[in-house]
Design a protein around this nucleic acid. Sequence first.
DNA 1: CCTAAAGTAGACAGATCGGTCTACATGATA
DNA 2: TATCATGTAGACCGATCTGTCTACTTTAGG
Lengths: 196, 196
Amino acid sequence: MDKRELLIRTAFRLFYSHGIHAVGINSVLKESGVAKRTLYHHFESKEQLVEAVIQYRDAVFLEWMQKRLASVEAGEAGIRELFAALHDWFNDQVIELQAFNGCFFINSSAEYGDHDSPIHKACALHKEKVVQLIHRQVEASGVLAKKVDEVTGFIAMIKEGAIVTAHVQGDRDSALRGERLALAMLQLNRGHEPTA
Amino acid sequence: MDKRELLIRTAFRLFYSHGIHAVGINSVLKESGVAKRTLYHHFESKEQLVEAVIQYRDAVFLEWMQKRLASVEAGEAGIRELFAALHDWFNDQVIELQAFNGCFFINSSAEYGDHDSPIHKACALHKEKVVQLIHRQVEASGVLAKKVDEVTGFIAMIKEGAIVTAHVQGDRDSALRGERLALAMLQLNRGHEPTA
DNA sequence: CCTAAAGTAGACAGATCGGTCTACATGATA
DNA sequence: TATCATGTAGACCGATCTGTCTACTTTAGG
């Protein structure tokens, strides 16, 4: 495998389970079996490696989520699938996402709290992309047009709450609660076609 | 001031704005002007200092929140006050909580991901206490008795989502959105006394 | 065939990490 | 008066941090 890729994957695994500041460059090298010189050939600094790791996780997570959402009809079924996917993630049923340890972007934002930090910005950007995925589902869900943005914001917020609750509290069923809440919200903001 | 207290306050300020692993013991000493020997007189290790800092923040945050909730009638008004308080916090209107940088317990859980870590456990415990505060408000809100636990879980989840959204995305109005969502949920699960 | 990119091991530098230690000062209390 | 908790400054320890460097090897493409 490409050494650059190997470094990113190894770094992600270690950063995700122990935190970024808690993992030294030497651990990444030891774990991956790559020479230090090679790391600094591909990346100018640890910070640049971190940025590459964020970008990598962003791609992996979004591809996974998009695939899950594409497996059902857009709309309410998509919202159900969103929370079903989260539930699988929280319960370690998604191999490509690794053992659940919270959201890597929330965690990294915690370590790089400054909003001007490139790393924090990259985390915010990832979240925006996920919001867009949700937006498409809400648009197709029969929610009143003028309520679509509001409901999208609600569901995105519920999703973040479910992730945090699953991680901090260890509540592995928080996605199920999130689903019930989100569906109730959809119902409440729907036009009346589905009842006909 | 008590040196122990001074160390805890200084450590909190630094940990909260830069993360725990990113702040060395020497920074805490320099910033507080306390001798290293004194720190290790009061605390066996950095980890014990961290635990004391968590406990300190737990007390400060809960006292603040309890005072805010006590200022209004329990029930729906309490839920409104909860989100009003969060809104003030997110917008740096609460001096005793320091400039908003996310939730210290979520942030620390990110750095101490292992559920068996005493620090992670302490963070989970804090969240449980906050849930109890919410529970009391929901109980008094006219929500159907059998729905109280469910609605409490919803509102706690919304609260976490609002905090994360405010921090990661920099959305300073997320508490207002959270309030709208929470109130709609209350309404939906209410018995019919208030309409009479 | 030649060259340039990508790779190796690991010593090294300078800073900082958490934590220990000596030696001493102060102030309250038994 | 004697003692003990609390405090000071800062040298020192071994480990680890990010990042540089020398010297050499492998590999793929023009």
